[in-house]
Every structure is written in structure tokens, then in C-alpha cells.
Design a protein around this nucleic acid. Structure first.
Lengths: 110, 110
DNA sequence: CTCAGACTTCGACGAGCATCGAACCATGGA
DNA sequence: TCCATGGTTCGATGCTCGTCGAAGTCTGAG
């Protein structure tokens, strides 16, 4: 039994919400990791705690913010969570945005 | 005698600062007005007070935020102020960003 | 059924931001 | 020189956000 966590519809994607989500360097780092590369994305909190130097609640908060902005989709299957970027949805509504924002390399020292 | 108000160097443009400036719908509306169209940009506070439905101090604050993020250049000549988008500087550092963010039409009901 | 592990939610705290009214300042004209 | 005008700065206010620790919740294993 799998369920998809609540997310805005593709046509409801809002520029302010998306930019608000992408302002935070930690969230940009997360988005960049799942945006480039088709390899399975590791969304475990412990991994990102280390990478970003923040605690689990904060990581959880960032993932929620990204999802509620419509940038990611989270599917829960038992204890396994799969998070993926909603590339097509975002691209159709705001062409070139993710590429422009996530393209440049950046420091992850948020 | 003209003077250019303080602004970050082209190579110091920071993604977080720029996105932070563009998150606000009012600032996006201002940027869009000066981004498209080569026609002289009206940066008078009174005009934008009406358009955005905010007071003069807030308009002044928004212009300052845009300038300090490196998105605009303000040249003061006597009582005349000229504000312009720093297209090339931003484009060189973050290609496609302004187009992607300012391209879509939006409500100005900020 | 119970337990351990991992993520989420709750409550709180501190920082930052948009906004406003009031006071300030600089410019150009009378 | 003095004044009117338009934008800026100051101080305050209410809201939002990132962050954390503690408590809650859900899953799979024993």
C-alpha cells in the first residue's frame, strides 16, 4: 500500500511559493541532488543531517516545504520514502526556472 | 554631478540574495517593468505607491533591496533618479534566471 | 504483542522582513 | 535665503521562517 503525500496540483504552482522554497541554500542543495542525475535519490534524514549540518526535524521541515511548494513528490511505501523532483510540472509552468536556479554550483555551507 | 548608489560587484552576485529579493511579488513587478521594454523606466515612488498599493517608505525599501541584491543600478543626478536592471551582470553569473523568473505574467496583487 | 529505530509533529525561541507613520534631508525654484 | 516637494531613514509592530529538543507516530522484526 503506497500513498502520495499532499501536494499542489500542477496548474496551481505558484512562483512566490517556489521561490520561497528555493531561497534557502539547504533546500537548493537538496533539490540539486535530486534534480541532476537519474540515480536513485537518497532522501534519508540521517544523510542530510550530516551533509547539511542540521538536525532531523529541520531536514523534515525542508522536505515538507519543498513538497508543499510543488517542487517534489513524496511517495510513502511502508517504511520507505521516495522523493523525486516534479521536473515536468515545474518546467511546463515555469520554463527554465529549475535549470537557472539549480544549475550553478554552490557552496553547501548554509 | 552624478553618483551611483552602492551596489555589489558583478562577481559577488549571490543566488540567495537575488532569490530573496525576487521572492516578493511587489519587487518582481518592479523588476519586470524595468526588465522588459527599453522604454525609460518610471521609478517614481508615487507611481509605484499607486500600482502596488503601498506607501512611499515601503517602495523605497523595495528599491533598496533590489539594488543591494545586485539586480538594479541606481544613478542619482540632482533630483532625478535613474534605476535600471543590471541585465548583463546577472545574466553572466546566472544565465536565464531573470527570464525564467520574470517571464511569466503574474498578478500584481501583492 | 512488544520493542527499537527513524521520521514527523509540537512548542518555543531568535532572527529577519514587510509595512507603516513620523521625522529627516536634499534639491530646485521663488 | 527661504520654502515646498519627493524620497529616504528611523523606530516600532506584527508576521514568517529556520532551528532545536521533546514528545508522538508508524513500520517492520523478534
Amino acid at each position: 500500500m503506497t500513498r502520495t503525500l499532499p501536494e499542489p496540483a500542477a496548474e496551481d504552482l505558484d512562483m512566490t511559493a517556489i521561490l520561497g522554497a528555493l531561497v534557502d541554500p539547504a533546500r537548493r542543495a537538496i533539490m540539486r541532488a535530486m534534480y541532476r542525475g537519474p540515480e536513485p535519490f537518497d532522501c534519508s534524514a540521517s544523510t542530510w543531517c550530516e551533509t547539511l549540518g542540521i538536525t532531523a526535524p529541520t531536514v523534515s521541515h525542508h522536505f515538507r516545504t519543498l513538497r508543499e511548494a510543488g517542487l517534489t513528490r513524496t511517495v510513502v511505501e511502508g517504511r520507505t520514502r521516495t522523493v523525486a523532483a516534479r521536473r515536468e510540472d515545474v518546467e511546463r509552468r515555469f520554463p527554465g526556472l529549475l535549470q537557472a536556479v539549480l544549475g550553478p554550483e554552490e557552496d553547501v555551507s548554509g
